[in-house]
Amino acid sequence: MNLNDLKGLKYYLIYALALLAFFTYSGMVGWKWFNPTKTERERSERANGTHGRSYIYHK
């Protein structure tokens, strides 16, 4: 492996480093990719309410 090889691989290495950066960021913020737990997000009328759901997503 030499400098020319690294030059030839530059686009792949840029992609790989971007992927690793995203992987690191995801690890830092607790982001699971392709999460099998499907969540529906909505805002409750009562901030501290107990039953603000208008729809439940059934799997």
Binding site: K38, E42, G52, R53, I56, K59
Partner: peptide, 19 residues
Amino acid sequence: SEFALVNETTGEEYNFTKE
């Protein structure tokens, strides 16, 4: 079961189900 994770500060809800 249906689950609702509720952010008591913002009112944001995260709804999901499990069987």
